[in-house]
């Protein structure tokens, strides 16, 4: 049971946290579409995309169970590792101030401006609103599907906990969107990306290791060690990047002023 819980809770947590980031990004654009072009087309576009995504999960989820676990762990673990390290890398760079933070309010303002500049539809359906809501929900949703399938593919029966995590994130974001009616700028996106990057990188490393035949010390417990390890790497990297960026910037400024 200990081993099961060790896999289940991080799976639910990783899927929940990663999905919440994606759903918040989709909600911002859907809110902008609804506010400017009308809710009927905005919600229909988002709903149609969710239906397509559910079909994708229904098709590809069960297919994974037919492939030998070690092969799935290597391929999906590799993708998960790349995905997790990519998030962790971006979160480190944002935390160090090297790249700007994602600003939902700015995204909302930009989307609203773009949608207002396009002429309104004369019929009952607004194709621009439908397409914009469909596209953003599809794109962000595909990332969620990838996350659910990837974190759910690491062991038998993990697809359900991963789906529960993603569904809980969807429900939470939809409720907050209905209640607040504005972009969820208070969600600490970079902290979430940081945590998810650490979780997914740890899972990915563990599964790739299993896939290539490594014997992890402490078996499944080493996932916790890997999480701590990646957190440590990130904690060391942030001040190093800050120092490196400011040192190079001051040298560049000195050279420019000469």
């Amino acid at each position: 049971m200990v081993v099961d819980w060790l896999h289940v809770w991080p799976t639910v947590l990783a899927a929940f946290l990663a999905s919440i980031v994606e759903f918040v990004e989709a909600l911002t654009v859907v809110l902008a579409v609804g506010a400017v072009r009308g809710w009927k087309s905005a919600l229909s576009g988002a709903g149609a995309a969710i239906a397509v995504l559910l079909v994708i999960v229904g098709l590809f989820g069960p297919l994974l169970t037919r492939i030998p676990l070690q092969d799935v762990q290597l391929v999906v673990g590799g993708l998960l590792l790349l995905f997790g390290l990519r998030w962790l890398r971006k979160a480190i760079l944002r935390a160090a101030g090297v790249i700007p933070l994602h600003d939902e309010v700015a995204v909302y303002a930009r989307e609203t401006g773009t949608l207002q500049s396009t002429g309104l539809a004369s019929g009952p359906w607004d194709p621009v609103a439908l397409a914009t809501a469909f596209k953003i929900t599809m794109l962000e949703g595909l990332e969620v599907v990838f996350i659910v399938i990837a974190v759910g593919a690491g062991g038998m029966g993990l697809l359900v906990p991963a789906s529960i995590g993603a569904t809980a994130a969807l429900v939470l974001v939809v409720i907050l969107g209905i209640v607040l009616h504005r972009p969820l700028s208070m969600v600490p996106e970079n902290t979430l990306k940081f945590s998810v990057g650490v979780l997914l990188a740890a899972f990915g490393t563990f599964w790739v290791g299993e896939g290539i035949g490594l014997t992890w010390p402490g078996a499944d417990w080493s996932i916790l060690g890997l999480m701590f390890g990646f957190f440590l790497v990130a904690a060391v990297a942030v001040p190093l990047c800050r120092r490196c960026a400011s040192a190079h910037l001051s040298v560049a400024l000195r050279q420019a002023s000469r």
Binding site: L93, V98, C244, L249
Partner: peptide, 21 residues
């Protein structure tokens, strides 16, 4: 990871687009 973020930080600083910490 460390090498990549350091390289990116140096590149950003050289390009002058690093934002204040």
């Amino acid at each position: 990871v460390l090498e990549s973020v350091m390289r990116r930080s140096r590149a950003a600083a050289n390009a002058g687009d690093a934002i204040p910490p």
